[in-house]
């Protein structure tokens, strides 16, 4: 029963969503809408579980006598900010403290974190991007054209770079993307059919 019931739920749910996509049958459409609403609820519960897990990990670290001091300080900051955002977020969906925490801490930190990639990018460009074979040379050429085509300072002096970059994106890139998409779509259809037919039970 521990296997059959989840598989039956997956098979029935899959069929309902599939039929609702192709046929306009009122009871099936209603059932599909309910299933999708349940999907949203399950995902929301997953967020709650992950938040609880984060809290438990850091509380555990604080109670561990052998943990290093700086890690405990880090955990105190995480727990403090977690509680501040959670409490203000529950009090009001548009609480000024919640918004301040997001605008003044979360947003600058997020942007800074991604900006750090630039330093890795320049060292990687210097160390790893080599024209050692025909394929690597083509990749290098295409990359340089797209990079230069997206730099207005270059466009101002060599206008055709922008057109060349548009061609690289619209011709070879699109052909490759289409191949990837069609391959992935065939794989998705196969996986979907296997789940709906109860042959793929990897989710158990």
């Amino acid at each position: 029963m521990r296997t059959e019931v989840p598989v039956a739920i997956a098979v029935i749910s899959g069929f309902i969503i599939l039929i609702a996509h192709f046929f306009n049958i009122a009871p099936i459409q209603a059932a599909a809408t309910h299933l999708q609403d349940w999907g949203i609820l399950i995902a929301a519960f997953a967020i709650v579980v992950s938040a609880a897990n984060l809290l438990m990990v850091h509380i555990g670290r604080l109670s561990n006598q052998r943990e290093e001091a700086w890690k405990k300080v880090n955990s105190v900051i995480v727990i403090g900010l977690f509680l501040a955002t959670a409490v203000t977020g529950v009090i009001s969906r548009d609480h000024h403290v919640f918004n301040w925490l997001y605008d003044r801490i979360m947003l600058p930190l997020g942007v800074t974190f991604v900006s750090m990639n630039m330093f890795y990018l320049v060292t990687a460009a210097f160390r790893a991007f080599r024209a050692q074979s025909l394929e690597a040379s083509l990749l290098l050429g295409a990359g340089i054209i797209v990079l230069l085509g997206n730099a207005p300072v270059v466009e101002a002096f060599v206008p055709w770079f922008s057109k060349a970059a548009t061609w690289v994106m619209g011709a070879p890139n699109m052909a490759a993307q289409r191949g990837l998409m069609i391959g992935a779509a065939i794989g998705a259809v196969q996986t979907g059919l296997r789940v709906i037919c109860g042959l793929d039970r990897s989710y158990l």
Binding site: L121, T123, F126, R130, L147, L148, N150, A151, V154
Partner: peptide, 16 residues
């Protein structure tokens, strides 16, 4: 962004 792109290309060329 323009100058950052030029710098990356400069490093690719110098590296090669």
């Amino acid at each position: 962004q323009s100058f950052a792109h030029l710098l990356v290309i400069g490093f690719i060329v110098a590296g090669n």
